[in-house]
Design a protein around this nucleic acid. Sequence first.
DNA 1: AATCTAACTTAGTAGGCATACA
DNA 2: TGTATGCCTACTAAGTTAGATT
Length: 593
Amino acid sequence: MLLLWLRVLRRRFQHVPRRVPCRHSSRGAKASRAGWEERNKNSVKWKQLEHKGPYFAPAYEPLPDGVRFFYDGKPVKLSLAAEEVATLYGKMLHLECTTKEVFRRNFFSDWRKEMTAEERKVITHLDKCDFMEIHRYFMERTEARRTLPREQKQKLKEEAEELQQEFGYCILDGHREKIGNFKTEPPGLFRGRGDHPKMGMLKRRIMPEDVVINCSRDSKVPEPPSGHQWKEVRSDNTVTWLAAWTENIQNSFKYIILNPSSKLKGEKDWQKYEVARRLKGIVDKIRAQYQADWKSPEMKKRQLAVALYFIDKLSLRTGNEKEEGETADTVGCCSLRVEHVLLHEKADGQEYVVELDFLGKDSIRYNNRVTVEKHVFQNLQHFMEDKDPRDNLFDALTTASLNRHLQDLMEGLTAKVFRTYNASITLQEQLRVLTRAEDSITSKVLAYNRANRAVAVLCNHQRAIPKTFEKSMQKLQQKIEAKKAQVAEARVELEKVKADLRTLGDSKSKSLLQKERQLMKLEERLAQLHMQAADKEANKQVALGTAKLNYLDPRISIAWCKKFQVPIEKIYSKTQRERFAWAFNLADEDFEF
DNA sequence: AATCTAACTTAGTAGGCATACA
DNA sequence: TGTATGCCTACTAAGTTAGATT
C-alpha cells in the first residue's frame, strides 16, 4: 500500500524519462556503455530544437451580470472557480453525454471540489441546478461569431495566422518545421468514448508550472508567460516532443509534437511502410508456420498461432490488457474474452464459422462472421472449454509474448505491422482489379474510393452516420427519378423521329443520330447516378480517412495517379499532400508495395 | 517474468470553411 | 447574396510498443 502510494507520488511530482537515460547522465558499468551509446546514437532525434513553448488557453472570462445560474429556482452568484466549472457544463447542455448518469455524477463531484464551503452547503443536488441562461449565453456567442460580418471574420483569421506564425513553428536542425498542436488543451469536462467510467470529470487548466519544455541546450529557451515559470526545462534529444504535461484524468502525458508534414514524422512514416514491405517478403513463411502450429501439442503455441491467424486474417489489433474501471471495457485480439466468440459448426451454408462480437478501440463494435479452418475451429472450442464468459480466450498469451515471437521472426515485426501490410496490399490489389484505363477521371476516382473502402471495412473504421445522410440520400433519389423521366422522354422522342423517318424518308436522319446520342448520354448519366447512390449507401458508416492517413502506403496511391493520369489533388487534400511529401520522390508509376 | 509507463501512432468527431446552389 | 451542403482540419482520446523497474 505504502509502495503504491509512493509510486503515485513520484508519478505526480517527477518527470523522469525512463526509457533512455539522459544523455548527460554519467553511466556506470563500462561494459554496457558501448551498447548504450550504440542505442543512443540510433535514438538521437535531433541536434537542434528551438521553439516558443506552448500557447496557453485564454484565462477564464467571468459571465456578464445578466447571465445567471439558478439553484432550486433561485439565482445564485457563484465564486469565480465554481462559475468557471459551471460554464463548462452549461456549454454542453445540448450534448447527449450530459444526460448520462456517470457523466453527471463525475461532473458534480468534481464541481463541488471547486466550490467554496458556503456553495457546497447550498448546492447539493445537480437536479436542482439550472444552467439554461449559461447555455443560452454560449449558444448565442457561437451564433454571433458565425454571423460576424466578412471583414471581422477576416480579421480573426489574420489573428489566428499571426498566432500560428509565432507559436506554430519550431526550428529543428536548421529547418523551420510546423508544430502539430501548439496550444495547451483548455479546461473542460472529460469526454471519454463509449462507457467510460471517468466521463464528466474535470480536466483541469494547464499552467506553465505544469509544463516541461524540451529544447536544445544552446537554443533560445522559450519565455514562460509573465509571472510564471516552467516546471522544468530539459534537453533530451532522444525524444521528439517539444513540451509535455501530465493530464489529471488518466495521469498520463500529453505532448506538444511536430506536424505530420515534418521531416522527422515523414521519415518515421516511411520506415513504417518499409517494415510492412519486409513483412510481405516473409508472410507466406509466417503463415505456413502458424498453420503448422495449430497442431502443436503445446497449448501456448496453439494459442499464439490462432491469435496470430486472427491478427493476420482479420487485421485485428493486438489488444493490450487494460486496468479495469479506469477506461471503457474494450478489447483486441489478445484480450478477447469467451463471451466475444460464438462458434457455429454450420452457419449460412458454411462449415466452421466463427462469429466475433466485441467493442474495440474507441468502443467501436466489431461484428464479423468468418469461415475458418477446421483446426482453428477445434482449437477455439478447446480454448473456450470450461471457461466463464468473462474469461480470456487466449489465457496463455500476452501482447508482450506475441510481439517477442514476432520480433524473432523478423526484425521490427510487431502485431500492428500486419494491419499496415494487409491494408496496403489490399489497396494495391483492389486498385489493380477495379481500375480501367479507359474510364473517365471521375470513374477512376470512384474506383479508388472503393479500393480505399475495402481497406476501411477490413480495419473496421467506422463513423457515425452523417446527420444529413437521409436528407441528402433522398435528394439523390429525386435526381435519379428526374433522370429516369428524362430518359423515358428521350426514348419517346427517338421513337417519334424513327416513325417520322419511315413515313417521310431519310430527310431527318441527322436528327435521328442526334436523338440517339442524346439518349445514350442520359442513360450514361443515369447509370452514374445509380452508382453514386450505391456508393453513398456503402459509405454511410465507413470512415475512409483513417486508412488513408495511417495504413495505406502513399506511394501506392501516387504511383496509381501517375499511371492512370489522375491528378493527385483528386486523391489527397492539401494537408495530406504535405503529410506524404516524403513519398512523392519515391514513387514512379510502377512502384510496387 | 511481470509490471509499469513514456513516447509514440491511430482514431472518431465537432464544427469551421469553402463551394454549390437558390 | 444568403443559405445549404459536404469536405477538411483541429482536437484530443485511445490505442501499441518497448525499455526500465520490481
